[in-house]
Write a protein that binds this DNA or RNA. Sequence first.
RNA 1: GGGCAGGUGGCGUAAUUGGUAGCCGCGCAGGACUUAAAAUCCUGUGGUGAAAACCGUGAGGGUUCGAUUCCCUCCCUGCCCACCA
Length: 827
Amino acid sequence: MPRDELHHRYDPKTVEAEVQENWRREGLYQAVDFDSRPKQYVLVEFPYPSGEGLHVGHCLSYVAQDSIARWKRMRGYNVLYPIGWDAFGLPTENFAIKNKVKPQDATKKNIANFKRQIQNLGISFDWSREVNTADPAYYRWTQWIFLQLFKHGLAEKKEVPINWCPKDKIGLAFEEVIDGKCERCGTQTERRTIRQWVLKITQYADRLIDDLEKVDFLPEIKQQQINWIGRSEGAEVEFKIKNPESRSENLESSIKVFTTRPDTLFGATYLVLSPEHGLIKKLESRIENLEELRNYIAKASSKTDRERQESKEKTGVGLKGVKAINPVNKEEIPVWIADYVLGSYGTGAIMAVPAHDVRDNEFAKKFHLPLIKVIEPASLEFIPNAQALEAQAVPVMHLEYDCWIGEGKLVNSGKFSGMSSEKARDAITKFAKGEKTVQYKLHDWIFSRQHYWGEPIPIVICEKCGYVPLDEKDLPLELPDVDYYEPTDTGESPLAKIDSWVSVNCPKCGNPAKRETDTMPNWAGSSWYFLRYADPKNDARIADQKKLTYWLPVDLYNGGAEHTTLHLLYSRFWHKFLYDIKVVPTSEPYQRRVQHGFILAPDGQKMSKSRGNVINPDDIMNKFGADTFRLYILFMGEYDQTKHWNDDGVAGAWRFMKRVWEFSHRVSVVVDATDDELAVLNRTIKLIDADLGRRSFNTIVSHLMIMLNDLQKKSTIGRNVLENMMRLLAPFAPHAADAIWRKVLGHNNSIHTEGWPEADAARSEDKHRIGVQINGRRRGEITVTDLMSAAEVEAVVVALPELQKYLNGKKPKKFIYVKSRIVSIIV
RNA sequence: GGGCAGGUGGCGUAAUUGGUAGCCGCGCAGGACUUAAAAUCCUGUGGUGAAAACCGUGAGGGUUCGAUUCCCUCCCUGCCCACCA
């Protein structure tokens, strides 16, 4: 075979290996601290190095962010695009147990595999800043942050009901329980009460909502965080318990309820306590049906949350012999317990207003409790669908709205009757001596795990001194190397069995004491990892202040939607705390947050080993090369939408890469570009710039294809046009673009050190082919230039022979010309 | 039940967010090259129709010279949350 022809053949494996070797040698992608170029911090969520290797979903986000990082570099930014390993946590531990290896060894091996795959993909990570959460030099600072939280009263150990996964033998945070099942293994969780470390994220709830205004997150991400935190404003109102036997003050008790609708207080006809409510014990002596009540409570507490949710049928038991007094009208009302009231929200007790709350309404109907209507819709417009119903001649005012949950005008409410809901809320709260409060759905973050493979919590438990923090200079508290790391049934961490590690002297009083044996959850190390990238080897502090000030905030952060209420929220919380203690310079860690869509298997299912439908990136890269793979995952569909993998689709990207390669080797490069070539180039630059801004990666690939389609029949091409074509391709297919740049175009630098092409603003495409509509129908086409006036266009249009039969020689009634877009004529 | 995102050819999708609906790709059909196949290249490809033309963006209405895009009503799908008072 002649040498030329050999060259023309596209052999990605050889080309890519060679190009990657060049990059390594030239150290192209290192970020430079304090460089005078503007900084750009581009971040992807670091992976946990599983035994399965890289998922195509990882590839999608790394490739997309890589193209942004490369584009920004070409535009003159000092780009930080780092990577690391979220190595602690349950998945790695489970993998280790299953494969009978130590988690340390499994992690090491898996990281090597991930690294190889990522490097084959040609991602421009700055490998000099690699971090690993399981490295003592790293988790030293995770422990340090914990100590700061402890010292500021934001970490404490307390008895909490948790969701316990019997299979993984682990306590789970609320966020880790999906439909009552363990997020990791799908096992039905149980309720247990355990002493656990808890981080008080709820103290930051307001700021976590309010500061969303400062950042540029996708709206759905903001909304989801707001909903998750679930702030609701209302009032706490106290209901006194009537004491029939004794008037002595000290026997008097009361029930506090939380309500968002104090305006309905006159409609409160009974109270409901959650089964867990503490008052029940206190009132035992006067409850006449104690037996019945105890049975109900026992049944309710044995139910998992899941079981409670399964049936929405209301159940409950009235407290016979107990009456509460409605503070606004002094009416005596009954008290019930029912499991539709949650012990974990508000005060664990509610006032029931069956006329204006759907759940109370159902309950009241079932147990024949009274209903008092106290709100009337102020007008028709408050009734949903009122206009539609009226249109169907349904008499709206006669609709049965025996449960009107909207606002309106008060009735049956003493001196407040006639007032609007809005005004009455404050007025009645005051009148009832209630207190305006705010409640959150967000729970404090349960931070203990009874497992081996996590950061040890740097606390000593001393009989005399209580929980004593380790001295900061004794960090890191290293995880001991052990032979048995399987979780225990007792709910105790496996660390508890290692006496030599557990037994220490109290740092405060010196007496014998024991180490805390719980470890941190996998969300700990990932809550601050992006800070460490700014200064990964610092052993004096988490990172140098000046470096943090230079690099923060992260400019563009891409991650999975499944982390919105977990990692993203947790790390914002830690960051705000670190900001408060002046460790970080910004109040928010991430300026912009975007997310990618899931990639499913071709069968529309989640990829999994057991289903045998996993697409392995190695296979695709072996067959087609990294550039083809990169283009295809970007081209598959909308970036943030769920997509199905399609093997046939890869062929399109492969053919394109091949045509690029062969075209650039075949065509003769000449000095001057033709006008047509320049027009194509200019148009493509503009389109790609716009699409990079809105992360429309699929259309970028299509613009590149169109550009090649328009040029590929040429036998000669202007040097400038081919060079810029390669520059445009470089962020997306970085290997081929670099190889052509050096070998075909004869440069001795990497294309990734080049500038990004500028669109020529003066060269607007002056000619347009636009449609002509007559009475709203497309009847012809004309060519216009940007310079033509409406009158000039009209003159051309009315003279067009093919339009005469529609115009009938009449003068148009109306002539509309939208510049360079369309002509519309009414006759 | 609530929040969010969607519904466009056989399929993945595009449409400068009010201006020629279907770009790009897959698939399919026909052709070229080949002993043949693969690969590659060329042509065609929303539907009905011989054509003219008509129909067509989940359904129905509306606003407009003009609607995939805006408004109203409704249906369906996906994701997240869910007895949160």
